[in-house]
Simulated scan of single mutants.
Amino acid sequence: MEVIILSDPGRIAGLVADAVERRVRATPSSVLGLATGSSPLKIYEELIRRHRQSGLSFADAHAFLLDEYIGIPRSHDQSYYSVIRREFTNHIDIPAERVHSPNGESDDIAGEGARYDESIRAAGGIDIQLLGIGTDGHIGFNEPASSLRSRTRVKTLTEQTREDNARFFPSMSDVPRHVLTQGLGTISESRQAVLVATGAAKAEAVAAAVEGPVSAICPASVLQLHEHAAVIVDEAAGSALELADYYKHTYANRPKWQEL
């Protein structure tokens, strides 16, 4: 795991966008794993800018979302089906049918996870997976105590997660209690994983994920076992890291050929 601490979210967005652009230009049919929420927004803004100004094309790519709410329709403005289109994919040239998400309206919710995992495999697997982290250490919607080998499945949200997401809904009572989420095992199969976090509210979760034990109590800690994972944070989100000075030293002295 590489840990990178940068001074501001703009630098983080540029670094991650560089990694996505390199992969897509080298392999136009790349499979992207997309997260929603506030963490990746600046990354998406930067990729949209590069598409418009530099001709970065996603026309042959596939994209798979991490998760989806159960209990609201895809047409709801807070369904992740709608959010990712509004915030990213409607602004680039990726065909709509190549943007995939778990179906929270499926008639077979119990079987939807296996179907989604199979669709990822059929596309060739995730090449680069973007991730955020919850204040309790969750990635995707894998709440604490999730199996480190879990597959895409139904999960019940903790009240903390519902409270964190209530700002997107009219009231707390409108926040769904259940979701479909890629499992930790599914996420671990990505060829590259990039977790982004900003703000002091994420500091304890970042420290647990990076420097704590690999444990189901902090689902993001599974990335310590990933063969190509990076955790990229701003100063505030990295403020609880014991080895922060070392991570900064390592990044400042990385070989010129080394890329994210």
Rank of each mutant, 00 (worst) to 15 (best):
R191V: 01
L157R: 08
N165K: 08
S173D: 15
S119R: 11
F141L: 09
K155T: 15
L157N: 06
D117L: 06
G183D: 05
L184Q: 10
S173G: 15
H138C: 04
E112R: 06
H138P: 05
E189Y: 06
T135G: 11
D127N: 02
Q129E: 13
S146E: 07
N142Y: 07
R115F: 08
R191P: 02
D117R: 05
E112D: 08
I133V: 13
R162G: 09
E189N: 09
A114H: 11
G140S: 03
D164M: 03
G185N: 06
Y116D: 02
G132E: 07
G125N: 03
A110H: 14
N165W: 03
I126D: 00
T152Q: 06
L157M: 14
R177K: 15
S171T: 12
G185P: 01
R167F: 10
Y116A: 02
A110F: 15
I139A: 04
T161R: 00
I120Y: 01
I139Q: 01
S173W: 10
R167D: 10
T152G: 02
N142K: 06
S146W: 07
S171D: 13
Q160N: 13
Q182W: 05
V179D: 08
A166V: 05
D164L: 06
D136A: 14
D117C: 07
R115C: 08
D127Y: 00
H178R: 12
R162A: 08
R115M: 11
M172P: 05
D174N: 13
F141V: 10
S188H: 12
P144G: 08
G111M: 08
N165E: 09
E189H: 12
T181G: 07
F169C: 10
H138G: 05
D127K: 00
F169S: 07
T181A: 12
R149W: 13
A114V: 07
Q182Y: 06
A123E: 02
S173M: 11
M172G: 12
